[in-house]
């Protein structure tokens, strides 16, 4: 059954809990498939949201993912409580990373996440306050008729 639009979803993301990382992005993938979104657009969307989700798990204490889908676009906002990003320009640079050893052991933390989100999203908006948290907003056109 096709979900009715507009659609709003919310997911809690637990900092440090890698066993759950990807759950929210997996749910997004299911919904986009039900909406018959083109597979290439689904892949770009969930790769971007998954990288962002992993970032919250890797760096923040806790976070929420807010997903809004209307007939044209998907907007994924990740709002976290965490250390924040002191230098956003550096964080956007490929290869720049502050990830811990445990994050690297999970196959992440090579400084590729944010640049890859930017490549896959139509738009990426990033704001952060040191000591408070970070907000990442990913927007993509869904190409629905």
């Amino acid at each position: 059954m096709k979900p009715e639009l507009p659609l709003h979803l919310e997911f809690n993301i637990e900092g440090g809990n890698f066993t759950r990382a990807g759950f929210a992005s997996s749910e997004i993938k299911k919904v986009l498939k039900q909406l018959d979104v083109d597979m290439a657009i689904i892949k770009r969307t969930v790769v971007a949201s998954y990288e962002a989700e992993v970032n919250v798990v890797a760096h923040a204490y806790s976070g929420t993912m807010y997903v809004d889908i209307d007939g044209q676009t998907i907007r994924i906002a990740l709002v976290d409580e965490g250390p924040g990003i002191p230098d956003i320009e550096a964080a956007m640079r490929e290869g720049f990373s502050t990830a811990s050893v445990s994050v690297r052991e999970m196959g992440f933390g090579a400084g590729m996440g944010l640049p890859n989100i930017k490549k896959n999203a139509d738009q990426l908006d990033l704001s952060s306050e040191v000591g408070k948290g970070t907000q990442v907003v990913i927007t993509l056109g869904l190409g629905l008729k």
């Binding site: 990382a21 992005s25 892949k43 998954y50 999970m106 196959g107």
Partner: peptide, 15 residues
């Protein structure tokens, strides 16, 4: 050679 849940999650997201 990386065996954890995120390996499978990555495969899921990447089709």
């Amino acid at each position: 050679g990386l065996a954890n849940t995120q390996t499978i999650r990555t495969a899921e997201m990447s089709d």
